[in-house]
Design a protein around this nucleic acid. Structure first.
Lengths: 189, 189
DNA sequence: TAAGAATGTTAAGGTAGCTTAACATAAAGA
DNA sequence: TCTTTATGTTAAGCTACCTTAACATTCTTA
């Protein structure tokens, strides 16, 4: 049970992913990426950028010489592209298939874009493409799903929760536990 | 464009989420959670547990007195349950709907369980429940989806990639960019 | 071409989350 | 009770990522 510890061992951190994407975006937008541009783009200080660039350079993801422009290595560029693609797929899945509001979809996608394996991203792309398509089954799905119950079917039925009928929730209703109001903000103050 | 910075402002961090789940699991399993148990369960040092408990106490998520047992507050317990539920829903979606291998599904779910909003978790539960159900449309979906093409349909067609036909990929094929071999490990050594 | 503005780096410091080593407390047994 | 063992805490130090303040370099322009 040690998977959780590998969080810090991912190929790139959340910050690194966004620095790489910033460099790629600036390069595409204005032809070059400089420390100040990156700082503005990400809303961090220039000194923070300098030190992150040192770290990215150590990881072989960018090239940067003192007072010069920043370039992505091929590995860095690949990572930037993959993260960006992952974010796009996630966002589209969350909005178009799950029907979550744009703001929430964007935020969730931003948080997890760099943590989702390429296997999952690819399958998510496949599912999203399929369910958005003109395939007759996809059309039927969209019609039927719109009216599908919001909560776990077995428990939503109200009938003293016969758990066996719900393979997802098993013995406890996941729906309720997912939406409980935690009031963490209040606890902090 | 500052969503990305709120990564560190989530109600709980990855580590905190797993500490809370560990306490809940130990409490359920042996009736109490002590520092050593938590350390063993998570594979960290006891001193690390002590200091994390101080932090969790500051956040109002646990109660802990010197040399005593650890208790979850109601907020902490709610957070533990929600994270656990989120993980279960994610894992089931990834394995049963997307068809990703168990090991990858577990790892991805572990990484993002605490980062996914409850809105998304709830909708994911609804979708998973529906697609696993005996609803005729769900059955048809399972039959049809099994043979659905693995790549973005428009690009997979091979035909000089007419992008307009693929609403997901737009101008660049996301499928290819998601699976590129990055060789980051190699770059590190 | 020298002054001033724009840009970039270094230095020092803060939080989070981990480590090991040394120390403190509690529990058990002779 | 007194000692041994189990358990928990403190101290010091590490990396990552951010900050501000001070300093260095480069660009621009008069």
């Amino acid at each position: 049970m040690d998977i959780w510890k590998r969080f810090g061992e991912k190929e790139i951190s959340h910050s690194m992913a966004h620095y790489l994407q910033a460099v790629a975006a600036l390069k595409a937008e204005k032809g070059h990426a400089r420390v100040g541009d990156i700082a503005d783009h990400l809303g961090v200080s220039k000194s923070g950028v300098t030190s992150m660039l040192r770290s990215l350079e150590r990881h072989g993801l960018v090239r940067h010489e003192r007072y010069g422009c920043v370039e992505l290595t091929s590995v860095g560029a690949g990572l930037a592209t993959r993260t960006e693609s992952s974010r796009r797929v996630l966002t589209m899945f969350l909005t178009d298939i799950l029907g979550v509001p744009d703001a929430i979809a964007s935020e969730d996608a931003c948080m997890i874009e760099h943590l989702v394996s390429s296997e999952v991203s690819v399958e998510l792309l496949r599912l999203t493409t399929f369910l958005r398509s003109q395939h007759p089954v996809a059309r039927q799905f969209r019609d039927a799903y719109r009216t599908s119950p919001r909560a776990c079917a077995a428990h939503a039925a109200g009938a003293s929760g016969s758990p066996d009928t719900c393979g997802v929730c098993a013995d406890t209703c996941l729906h309720d536990s997912l939406i409980c109001d935690l009031g963490v903000a209040a606890a902090r103050t």
